[in-house]
Amino acid sequence: MARVLFVGGLGRSGTTLVERLLGELPSVRALGEVVHLWQRDIRDDERCGCGARFSACAFWQQVGERAFGGWGTVDVDRIQALRDAVERTRHIPRLAAASLPPAQRAEVREYAAYYAQVYAAAAEVSGAAVVVDSSKHSALAHVLRWADDVDLRVVHVVRDARGVAYSWTKTVARPETDGAEEMTRYSPGRSALLWNAHNAAFGLLARRGVAVRRVRYEQLLADPRQALRELAAYVDLPLTDADLDFLGDGHADLTVGHSAAGNPMRFRVGRVPLRHDDAWVRALPRGQRRLVGAVCAPLLRAYGYPLNPAAPQEA
């Protein structure tokens, strides 16, 4: 049974950074956002985190061979149909129930089985004790709860909703498309609603008996060594001080990874600064900060964030 660490949370919350740091630990293989593997990699042949096209990446080709006898045998249309049927945020209340109707349970388990096969093959090919899926999607985490052959542990990454809202307003090119496409953008109001929905869904997952550990993005950056020690213990992974030598004073030295899809940061190699990005405090207009703060107030309070952070010019 594959031991899977699922990194969840709303995009722009630091999930890719968490995945990259975890991927530097011994006996851990970070896979990127597996939820996008079917379309972006198998069909569109986008670039792996190592820089090679998916079809030319030796690691992923071995995974496909072990999991399915080759990626060419995978019925992507069937997987996408199952995704539309079961892996949507609106389906979470049903997925979180104590039981499912037989027909729906069969679809959920069939869909989850594709992921379980990828996880098991990736662990076998890499020799890792833990594989990391940074798909983020709360609905997928709820689906994986129903898989019989996945040892699921969830890391719920949260970041101040106002910082997330500001990040979603930025224009970011997708390197996989050589700059021809940009990543999705949301208005602050839209991102606030999504922040509430996704984070609440991970809270519901914990109440259904799934192991969920919350990590605040800001605390991770304040003490990455301690955060990684705690996450390693969470997945029963022995860790020594030497295993964290890739972390320096305010930076991490990252090696080449094999993230299948995700944030452009998955292509970064070498020294990467670890600094708290609080540009939103100055750059997000006051009215938008107040809007997001009001919409997200209950969860902001629950996660320990101040409701009225003052920008420097207002202090």
Rank of each mutant, 00 (worst) to 15 (best):
A116W: 02
Q117K: 15
V118F: 06
Y119Q: 11
A120I: 04
A120K: 06
A128C: 10
A128F: 09
A128S: 11
A129M: 13
A129V: 11
V130W: 01
V130Q: 09
H137D: 06
L140N: 10
L140T: 08
V143E: 08
V143M: 09
W146Q: 06
D151V: 09
L152M: 08
L152V: 12
L152Y: 13
R153S: 15
V155D: 02
V157S: 07
V164T: 11
S167Q: 03
K170Q: 15
A173D: 11
P175Q: 10
P175Y: 14
P175G: 13
E176Q: 14
T177G: 10
G179T: 08
E182C: 12
T184V: 14
T184C: 04
T184M: 08
Y186P: 00
S187T: 10
G189S: 07
A197S: 09
N199Q: 08
N199C: 01
N199Y: 00
A200S: 13
A200V: 01
A201V: 09
F202P: 00
G203D: 14
G203C: 05
R207T: 14
V210F: 02
V210C: 07
A211V: 04
V212A: 10
R213Q: 14
R214G: 09
V215R: 04
R216G: 15
L220V: 06
A222T: 11
P224N: 08
A227H: 04
L228V: 07
E230Y: 01
E230P: 06
A232P: 02
A233E: 14
V235N: 11
P238M: 13
